[in-house]
Every structure is written in C-alpha cells, then in structure tokens.
Write a protein that binds this DNA or RNA. Sequence first.
DNA 1: TTGTAAGCGTTATCAT
DNA 2: ATGATAACGCTTACAA
Lengths: 339, 339
Amino acid sequence: MNDDTDMPSGTVTADHVAAAAGVSRWTVGRAFRKDTSISEKSREKVLAAANALGYAPDLLAAGLASDRSNLIALLVDDFGNPHKLVVLERLSRILNDEGWGTLLCNMRDGHGAPSALLSASQRRVDAAVLNGTEFDDRIIETALGARRVKKLIVFARVSESPNTISICCDDVAAMREITSFVLARGYRTPLFVAGPNSFSAVLRRKDTFLSEWRKARGVLPPSIHVEQYSIPLAYERVLTALTGPYRDARPDILVCENDALAIGAMDAVRFGLGLSIPGDIAVIGYDDIPLAALPSYNLTTYHQPISAMAKGLVKVLESGSEPAEDIFFNGRFVERGTT
Amino acid sequence: MNDDTDMPSGTVTADHVAAAAGVSRWTVGRAFRKDTSISEKSREKVLAAANALGYAPDLLAAGLASDRSNLIALLVDDFGNPHKLVVLERLSRILNDEGWGTLLCNMRDGHGAPSALLSASQRRVDAAVLNGTEFDDRIIETALGARRVKKLIVFARVSESPNTISICCDDVAAMREITSFVLARGYRTPLFVAGPNSFSAVLRRKDTFLSEWRKARGVLPPSIHVEQYSIPLAYERVLTALTGPYRDARPDILVCENDALAIGAMDAVRFGLGLSIPGDIAVIGYDDIPLAALPSYNLTTYHQPISAMAKGLVKVLESGSEPAEDIFFNGRFVERGTT
DNA sequence: TTGTAAGCGTTATCAT
DNA sequence: ATGATAACGCTTACAA
C-alpha cells in the first residue's frame, strides 16, 4: 500500500536489515533474541538498521523454525460470569506485557473444548490455559493427547491430573476463613448455593464449607445447585428454593460458591421475596468481582489475587520444561454490607 | 510423550499422510482447503489417512507459505465495561466457528495501542479489529502504516478514516428513537451523561440527542462527561453533578451514553442521594448489557445486535480485498422499569 | 563472537 | 485432477 520510502517494497526481512547493517542475517536474529551472545556494537548497528527500515521479526516464521510459537491459548467458557472479564483482562495484559500472544478460544459452554484444543494445537501454542467450568479429566486427557500442546495449565481451578499445572487460589483455606466468620457471627442455618455439580467438586468450596460446618455444629448444612454461574439463573433457582423447599425453614445466610451466584441470590431475596439483606438473610460470595463493590450490592466476599496468579502463570511458562508444581495463592476476605 | 502408535514419532506432516494415502503431498493440502479442485475419491482417501494418523495441518507453516495467517487481532481496552464481555464472547465464538483464530490484544486503557498493533502485525494477522475507547485517527494511521495489517476494522464504532471498515449499530437512528421516547413521555429537563469527550464525538450519541432535543424544544440540554466507561467512576461523577451544579436544577431524566454509565448513575441516584427511580429521576442506557436486565436495575436501554454485527464482520473478512463498505445495523429499544 | 548450510511444514506456480 | 519446484522468513545446529 505504501512504498513511499525505498524499502524493498512489501516485506522487510532480516536479510534487508543484515545488508543495511553490514552483518549477516543470523546476527540480526541474535540481536532480537534474549539469550544469545552478540557484541553490544553489532546489536546496536542491527537495531539501528532495523529501526530505520521498520523491521520486526516475523513470529510465524520464527515459530515454525523454532517450534516455539510464543502463543498461549486461553480456553474459556462461562462467559455469563462477570468474573471472566477480570480474568481475561489480567491474563491478556500480563501475558502480552511479557511478550506472549494470547489466543482466545471460546469453548462455548457445553462442548467445543476438543475443537478449541485442536485449533490451538494447530497453531503450535506453547501452552494451553484452561479456565472454565467445562472441566473434567476427559478434556485434560484430550488436551494432553493433542498433538502439540506442550503444557496444560489449569487456571483458577485445581486439577488432579498429574500432567497438569494448577494455578489457583487456596479455596480450602479461603472457605475455612469464611466458615469461621459465619460461625463467629452467630449464623445458625446456612444454605450453600453451589454451581454445577461436577464443577463444585473440583473447586472444593462446597465440601470445605460443609465439612467445616459439621465439624463445628455437628450437622451438615443443606445446599442447592445452579447449573451455570449465571446471575439470572441463580436468581431463578434461589427464588425457587426459598419459596419451595426452604419456605418454612428459611436460612439466615446464603453462602455462595462465587459472586455471580451471590448477586443472583441477592436479587432473589430482595426483589423476588421482598426481604432485606442482611436483616432477613445474609449473603456471602467469592471472587470479589467489580459488581460486588457497588453500593447496590456491597457484597461480602473473598478476593482472588488474579494479577498475582497471572504472574505465577508467566513464571511457569518461562520455567522451561516439565517439573513445575501446582501453585497456590492466598486471597483476602472482604467484609462488606451483606453480613 | 505418547508414541504408543507407530506414528512417525513427533509430528505428523502432510508427507506422512500422503504416503499413507498413496498420493502426493499437494493432494493432501488440497483435501484440507475449501476452494481447490480435487476428486471426491482422493479427498476421501486423504481424509481417512489423516484421521488414522491424527494429522491436522500446521497453521503456522500454512500462514508462512500463503501469507494468510487465519488470525484476527482483537484490539481491546475498556475492560471496566461489562459490555466488553458480551463483545468478546460473540466475536470469539463466531470467528472461531468460522475457522478464524482470535488474538486477544489488550490495549491497557490509555496507551499500548501501538505495541498491540505491532505484535499483531508480527503475527501476520489477516485483520485487526479495533474495539475500544482508545480510538483516534492517529491510531488508525499507525495501524495502517504498520507492516502487515491488511485490514483494519472498527467494531461497534464509526471511523471517518477511508481505509477502515466500520461495523456498527446505527447510533444516530437509535438516539433519535430514544429522544422521541423521552419527549413523548413528557420529560422536560434531561441531563446527558457522556463518556470520554473525544470518544463521544465518535459515537454520535451525545450530539444526536442534543440536536434532536433542541430541534423539538429549542434548547440545548446540559451534559456531563465521565472519563471512562466505568460504573464506579460514573457513580462519582453523577453524584458530584447532582449534589453540585445540578442541585437546584435537578434533571428529571438521565440519558446515558451506555449502560455502564447508566448503572453507575442509578447507584448514585438511589444510594448516593436516596432518591427513587423512576419516581424522582428516570434513567436510560444503551447497549443492553446483561446487568441491565436484572431486577436490581431493570434498566430501559437500547439493544445492540452484537451477534449480527459479528456475522457482518465475518462477511467482511471473507470478502477478499478492499472495496468493502461500512455496515450499519439496527438495534432495538428495550423499555424496562427506569422510565 | 560471527558466518554457513540445512531445514521447519506448508502453499503458489507452473507443469503434466 | 494431480505432481514437482521454489519459495515463505526464520532458527538450530556446527564451523570459522
């Protein structure tokens, strides 16, 4: 489109830069990589020439030659959950800053993980980061079986699979803290609001709360499941529960697996039942999504340190090969107005 | 990791498939592309062999050779706006379904567009889709000047630049409809709540409302600006405006440039001022984000047809080269409980 | 520290 | 309809 300079019309390659700088093509390559050995002088010459010509290395060619694409696949579903926006922002920003490209693969809530994985592998991604509810060991096996997925990282969830690295907030510790708080405040009849059944098992939030509560009070609290982490769906299910099965045994607090559920639950309590929070029923969430801090909700919750987790991810990516361990982070309990 | 079959350990290439199928490598390639000519018989043979070997074309190599990466860069900022999650979900889903990879480039609110653009071009993206507030003609020029950005598409905004394709909801028609509604309902003293100054000019929402209102009532309504499309920031600014400059001239309706501003405005009115909506002050938004449908907000707004717009984008991508025109879509006014 | 040769896995182009 | 040649732009050996 624009050949207003005398650049070798079309693409500027390392060869052009090499010619301009009076070095060989491979020296140009070295000037742009981190680990290689090159004299300061050559590097400066090369960089100056590259700058003058408007050269930037072609990552496609580099990836093909080196078998490192510098691309990370983000395998995501559960887009109804506002928390996802926080996760995507942090992950893309921090990875981009560190020089990684991020391929957004939408798993489309329900199926699509295999095809997302396949297209990721066709691009030779250096790692696939799994963050979604569609998460079971079959998928992980699929991923690992897939041709070129070198690393599989499970973000903000825990995987039992040995070939996988989890980067996760310590949900068990978090739920213990929440349980202590609920007990200390004297609540007596909690209802746990969980997400999809299979997924709740992975998160460990539900079973931790249940067992901690039983340890203290001797009884297992009741719980309900919502099929998705969706605010409107949580609204429906909680309303149904509180007008049906729990009409005459109203809980005094709803302990929710995450903020999306908690927000839906709050709407059900206030707008569906006309009750007040925390006067009639208290609510606790998990994640600390931006919505939770608004005066409309002002939700007591537990903050996940997503930025720190994303930085942990970078570390894992940079740590060459296999032997990486799962990494756990501590979050922070945030008391607001719903308790 | 797994060489339990007798696959040519490591990577399966088109050559292996060709050998297995008894054809040449180029026939294998043809079997996987759409437009090429190949006999049904050959194609079946190839596909069967590919399937047996677990072959999938290497998109890096294909991109290098063909100069079509099949990758679309999504240049995004404004992650504080819940609407972004809807846009990202639709765009990634529909593009992925059509075989396009989506590269998520975080422009990090404020700067970073140039570097995002650069890394996109280094991956030879087939197009860059710009969707954010950091949007001015300098950026567009940068983009077009950048080496390998073949197409620049502005999504959900209008660009004046001739080298750009806009895919956009018809904001002018939408605001006219909104203005008619506000007039018909008998509101008399609107306050327009706009986003960042420079961006509002691009959206055409503010000036359309102002001029339509003046056409009908003879006066230009007042307006305020919020520096970002952020719910908490809108809360602050609206509260400041209504307790300061507009304390004794309280508007009877807040017409907001989008839902993020409207949600913040609602919180300011209800929780900051203790007024009721729509009794004391009415509110109108724009976008129809999921939040707007919740009982807590139940916001009157205008629905943008993001899915249709994403499909329009696909069409533009598939329409070979230049002569594509801007595309406008019609949305739909959604009356809820805040008016 | 720097240069050389040989690929990486595909597609464009031209031939058959 | 299919086959062969020559790139695509870079990197990983290894040699100087």
